[in-house]
Design a protein around this nucleic acid. Structure first.
Lengths: 346, 346
DNA sequence: ATTGGCACTCCCCGCTGCTGAGTGCCAGAC
DNA sequence: GTCTGGCACTCAGCAGCGGGGAGTGCCAAT
């Protein structure tokens, strides 16, 4: 029993099963794939694959179905990332071409996530550029009323956070000179720093304030710290939920836990965070039981980091049933990650 | 056949059908509700209700099911909005209590939409405060590099939009004096104005610019106009999608079109926009065929306006199967709309 | 207007038997 | 040793069948 053929059999089983969604038998296999051997031979191979835990039978005298381990072997055994087909490439261009002109981050991510969902026919997720790694570009202080200000934080990834500040009535009003002075000091303390460094630096601003301003300054600093903290707490955008319920989705039953996990964005973000890209392919795949979360036991995630320059600032990916078309998903995720990195680099 | 009893029968049918999800027959009806008459009498009433198109039989010799028109009559015939039960009220307090402390609009809406979804067990939607009606509070101009600026727009509803501006290399750099001057003029032109008025007023800024600054000024003004336009294009937040696939959801089949409609936010926003609150109850209900969109033919929407002061600035609501618990949904939507209005009023 | 009775209609549920795809094993061929 | 054809066996899925039950409409009586 030649070793490479066994891998070919596994690959054929995965492909057929993904395509038909039905357990695949030895006879169907030799008919659909030019394996050059008889069904009986395949049966022996299948018995061996089952022995190894790569495939399983739903019940006696049924065809075989890949296990999570089988999908894993299939994915690891993929020769290379399949390049996108011309129509796929055109679809990306069409969906992202316009968006690339826009400089608004929300807009770019929105378009990108939709494109990825449509391309892969799965649920697509994009993590906002992580601001733990991002740096403060500018802090703006805008007085709206004598006792009311807005603090606006802008980072070098283009993200903007704002906070309202209300100065307590027992404290003196905040005059324009103080606003100007404070704006200067806040920027001096934080500009170019990472979120955690910036928070530390703000302490100095606080202690060096004149006693009569202390109350107002501490309110503003607190708001800014809150904005900095919010940037560390990840956000994401999501598209293609409708793909989950599609006829061809594969999550025949028990969609509810999957949707719940998706809605509980923390779960997805944590999952993305713990994935690390394979250096060769540039993507990372988690399959079924490899995902610790209980509701996602028959889900798989394909993700990839993206970022401007060589540095990865966040991740994007797709989520679908373990029985998904991995080559297409992998190709799509990689292409979109590259595309997005290119757009952000400007 | 007394007229009021017929309405009681309709109400009983709707209630039972919503609870059991099965066609309800005359016998079951008299058993579960103290109607004080025999099944035969109910049968006569049912025949009359069917004649009026309020109920229908899925097939001969089956119980009755309310039609869209029947639900409509049921909703219109509701005596008054049921007040929230203590546990429900506590649930709102718990979910929104913390959020109320936050002054960040995104955060408040996020919490509120989750609360509404959990309360009603439906998909909840909140439209962002409509900025067509909102007014410009402040425009900030932040230089990041000699040829690069960020324009930040802040409105009195707390929404912030930002745009990057890149000044073309053939134009002169933008000096700090110009930034200060331009900031002043932009604010003078737009502050306190509605989005459409502001755009008109910006023309004057453009024409009165010195010739050597014209290029840079027009870039900035264009960015600001884009931000103003974006505010008119509505946004929404959404929660509780998982409720759709719940066992008890009621959309037995064909979830896909519903999810697609939800994901295509425009559809939902348009739907909300064309709903007008009933003055008595403060909410508005659309049922099944009353919704023009094709994919939502067995969906119903309960919505209500909200806003600071007496003015309605946007709407929120829930979407579910026509077979939903209307009293609970209506009570929940109204309570959350009031709560949110109160929070925003500060 | 209401009611009990009655005949009728079908959905639903469980049972049965069949078919076909698929398996494992074995003995023989290469 | 590896592959192959043959063979007996297993079992999910489907169609056909029949009874029970819930529900209806109609009618005559109160």
């Amino acid at each position: 029993m030649t070793e490479p053929r066994r891998l070919a059999v596994l690959r054929a089983i995965v492909e057929d099963y993904v395509a038909t969604r039905e357990p695949v038998g030895s006879k169907a296999l030799v008919e659909r794939h030019a394996l050059g051997v008889s069904p009986a031979t395949i049966r022996n191979d299948m018995a061996a694959l089952e022995e190894e835990g790569l495939i399983a039978q739903p019940h006696t005298s049924a065809g075989r179905v890949p296990t999570d381990k089988g999908y894993r072997a299939f994915v690891d055994g993929l020769p290379a990332v399949r390049p996108l087909s011309p129509p796929e490439r055109r679809a990306i261009e069409r969906l992202l071409g316009d968006g690339a002109r826009s400089l608004d981050l929300d807009d770019v991510l929105e378009r990108t996530v939709r494109a990825l969902a449509q391309l892969t026919q799965q649920v697509a997720v994009i993590q906002y550029p992580s601001l733990a790694r991002a740096r403060v570009r500018h802090v703006e202080l805008v007085p709206l009323a004598p006792r009311r200000l807005v603090v606006v934080l802008i980072t070098d990834t283009g993200r903007v956070e704002q906070r309202s500040v209300e100065v307590a009535p027992e404290l003196p009003e905040v005059g324009p000179e103080l606003v100007t002075e404070l704006r200067g000091r806040l920027n001096a303390a934080t500009a170019g720093r990472r979120s955690d460094e910036a928070v530390a630096a703000l302490d100095a601003v606080l202690t060096s304030a004149r006693p009569e301003d202390a109350g107002a300054v501490s309110s503003v600093v607190a708001a800014l710290c809150s904005a900095l903290a919010a940037t560390r707490e990840e956000r994401m955008v999501l598209a293609g939920t409708a793909n989950l319920v599609r006829e061809a989705s594969g999550f025949a039953t028990s969609l509810a836990p999957v949707l719940e996990a998706i809605e509980e964005q923390v779960v997805v973000l944590r999952l993305l965070a713990e994935m690390a890209d394979d250096p060769a392919s540039g993507v990372s795949v988690r399959i079924g039981s490899e995902i610790v979360h209980s509701g996602l036991s028959d889900a798989a995630v394909v993700s990839s980091g993206y970022g401007s320059g060589g540095e990865v600032v966040a991740r994007l990916g797709v989520l679908g049933p373990t029985r998904m078309d991995y080559p297409t998903s992998i190709a799509g995720v990689r292409a979109v990650a590259r595309y997005l990195s290119k757009v952000l680099a400007r």
